[in-house]
Simulated scan of single mutants.
Amino acid sequence: MKPQVSLEEITEDTLDAVLDLEVTDDQKSFVPSNAVSIARAYFSKESWFRAIYVNGDPVGFVILHLDAHKAQYFLKTLMIDRKHQGKGYGTLAMEQVADFVQSLPDARELLTSYPREESGPRSFYEKLGFEATGLEEDGNIIMSKPL
């Protein structure tokens, strides 16, 4: 049976459960802490962020940077708790993220980036249809997925 994955607003009542989620030790260098990520998103007018729930339990979160003026939509963070990685939840969440972005004005692609490290998420994003653009930002390789 396919798990029920949903993207839910992070509220005062759900914040602690999302903050308690953790990536694996070797992934900690790729992403800021959950508290820092969510605080930055909360104070950015161009951020859209949601907790990822599976069958009613939080397993991660996603943060998008939405620039409607340039019709650019950038996945800043996809975080799945270490206990829930490898179960397909990230892929199912990304399907919903892509659907959301497609509903936005002039959305033709979804962008993201990954660090050069071998253990980074490059292959995960490639499986989702992202391709390297040849561009870099802050040492990260930018990828694009047509919508």
Score class of each variant (00 low, 15 high):
Ala41Leu: 00
Phe43Pro: 00
Ser44Ile: 01
Ser44Gln: 09
Ser44Arg: 10
Ser44Ala: 11
Lys45Ala: 12
Glu46Cys: 11
Glu46Gly: 10
Glu46His: 12
Ser47Asp: 09
Ser47Asn: 05
Trp48Val: 10
Arg50Ile: 04
Ala51Gln: 05
Tyr53Met: 00
Val54Glu: 03
Asn55Cys: 05
Asn55Glu: 09
Gly56Ser: 05
Gly56Cys: 01
Asp57Cys: 10
Val59Trp: 01
Val59Thr: 01
Gly60Ala: 03
Gly60His: 06
Gly60Asn: 06
Phe61Val: 04
Val62Trp: 00
Val62Ser: 00
Leu64Trp: 01
His65Asn: 15
Asp67Ser: 10
Asp67Trp: 10
Ala68Gly: 08
Ala68Thr: 13
His69Glu: 12
Lys70Tyr: 13
Lys70Met: 15
Ala71His: 10
Ala71Glu: 08
Phe74Trp: 15
Lys76Leu: 15
Lys76Thr: 11
Lys76Asn: 12
Leu78Asp: 05
Leu78Gly: 00
Asp81Gly: 02
Asp81His: 04
Arg82Val: 09
Arg82His: 15
Lys83Asn: 14
Lys83Gly: 04
Lys83Trp: 06
Gly86Trp: 02
Gly86Phe: 04
Gly86Ile: 04
Gly86Cys: 04
Lys87Val: 01
Lys87Gly: 05
Lys87Pro: 02
Gly88Leu: 02
Gly88Pro: 03
Tyr89Arg: 08
Gly90Trp: 03
Gly90Glu: 01
Thr91Met: 12
Leu92Asp: 09
Ala93Pro: 01
Met94Glu: 08
Glu95Thr: 12
Gln96Ser: 05
Val97Thr: 02
Val97Ile: 08
Ala98Met: 14
Ala98Val: 15
Asp99Cys: 09
Asp99Leu: 12
Phe100Thr: 06
Gln102Cys: 14
Ser103Asp: 10
Ser103Ala: 12
Leu104Glu: 07
Pro105Trp: 10
Pro105Met: 11
Asp106Ile: 07
Ala107Ile: 03
Ala107Gln: 09
Ala107Asp: 06
Arg108Asn: 14
Glu109Tyr: 15
Leu110Thr: 03
Leu110Ile: 07
Leu110His: 02
Leu111Asn: 07
Leu111Gln: 06
Leu111His: 04
Leu111Gly: 06
Arg116Gly: 15
Glu117Phe: 00
Glu118Thr: 03
Glu118Phe: 02
Ser119Val: 13
Gly120Val: 04
Gly120Gln: 06
Pro121Tyr: 01
Arg122Val: 08
Arg122Asn: 08
Ser123Lys: 15
Ser123Ala: 15
Ser123Pro: 10
Phe124Pro: 03
Phe124Gln: 03
Tyr125Met: 05
Glu126Pro: 05
Lys127Phe: 08
Leu128Met: 14
Gly129Cys: 06
Glu131Trp: 12
Glu131Met: 13
Glu131Arg: 14
Ala132Lys: 12
Ala132Cys: 11
Thr133Gly: 06
Thr133Asn: 02
Thr133Gln: 01
Gly134Ser: 03
Gly134Met: 05
Gly134Gln: 08
Gly134Asn: 07
Leu135Asp: 13
Glu136Ile: 11
Glu137Arg: 15
Glu137Pro: 10
Glu137Ala: 14
Asp138Met: 13
Asp138Ile: 09
Gly139Asp: 07
Asn140Gln: 15
Ile141Phe: 11
Ile141Met: 13
Ile142Gln: 07
Ile142Tyr: 02
Ser144Val: 14
Ser144Lys: 15
Pro146Leu: 12
Pro146Ala: 11
